[in-house]
């Protein structure tokens, strides 16, 4: 794969004596939508945190855009993070600010735009997620799906190159799920982003993503396009993709890993 925007090489991450990731390598292609899948608690979110520089690997390296994330100072890390948008699990909107101010926060912090320019850009992003008329509302009056769309608008307001999604579909109804999924595709293609999605929702992902990584038991067990993986013969991949109880991924092992 040529010129990956994110390259993880031989990552090892331990929490206490527990090995969360063991020798995981990934190359993520520029402009693609990539899913990192696997049973709950297998270390998917840990990978996102390693990419965003919140955690440091015990071994191996994380390269984003050619920069070695794991060895940056706080200031350089912050500069780097302006190119990465993150959508956390529940959106994590600032509860004391309106929807408009939530989306405007990164602009106010990192740019010298005038009030008018900020207004235009924020309303533009809110329109693109279909929530222009909620601008004056407070986050608590939004539904779960709406909150996540606002968070998506906030994550892409700085026009980042990479957007990381942590379980963007969890706890949403099917319609909201499809809406988010369509929005991810549209924003990704319009803004030329690279999207990394952490999820365990196989059905939605198959429709959305270009490439999948499947983790199980702290290791990367398979990668490839969803079509290829669906028809993979490997028992563990087959078990996960088709949701079978019986298989090499033991229910008990999976449950012993807590995120």
């Amino acid at each position: 794969m040529k010129d990956p925007i994110i390259r993880l090489s031989n990552l090892v991450y331990r929490r206490g004596s527990k090995v969360i990731l063991n020798d995981v390598s990934m190359d993520i292609k520029r402009g693609s939508i990539v899913a990192i899948m696997g049973p709950s608690g297998v270390g998917k979110t840990t990978i996102l945190r390693l990419i965003s520089g919140q955690l440091h690997p015990n071994k191996g390296s994380v390269e984003v855009n050619g920069k070695l994330i794991s060895s940056l100072s706080r200031r350089d890390l912050y500069t780097c993070r302006k190119e990465i948008g993150v959508l956390l699990q529940d959106g994590a909107l600032f509860t004391d600010l309106t929807v408009f101010e939530n989306v405007a926060t990164p602009l106010r912090e990192h740019t010298d735009l005038s009030e008018e320019e900020i207004h235009d850009r924020v309303m533009d992003k809110l329109k693109s997620v279909g929530l222009a008329d909620t601008a004056k509302l407070m986050p608590y009056s939004l539904s779960g799906g709406m909150a996540r769309r606002v968070a998506l608008a906030r994550a892409v307001i700085m026009n980042p190159r990479i957007v990381l999604f942590d379980e963007p579909m969890t706890g949403l109804d099917p319609i909201a799920m499809s809406t988010i999924s369509r929005l991810i595709r549209v924003t990704n293609d319009e803004l030329g982003l690279t999207s990394v999605i952490v999820t365990h929702n196989v059905d939605q992902m198959n429709k959305l993503v270009d490439y999948c990584f499947i983790l199980a038991g702290a290791k990367l067990i398979a990668e490839g396009s969803p079509q290829v993986l669906m028809h993979c013969d490997e028992p563990a991949v087959d078990q996960f993709m088709n949701g079978r109880v019986e298989g090499p991924i033991s229910f008990n092992v999976a449950a012993s890993y807590q995120t």
Partner: peptide, 17 residues
């Protein structure tokens, strides 16, 4: 509470201290 609802984390990820 901001910490429990990952608002602090979200800020850090936006490169806001």
């Amino acid at each position: 509470l901001m910490k429990a609802t990952s608002q602090i984390e979200a800020m850090e990820l936006m490169a806001i201290d």
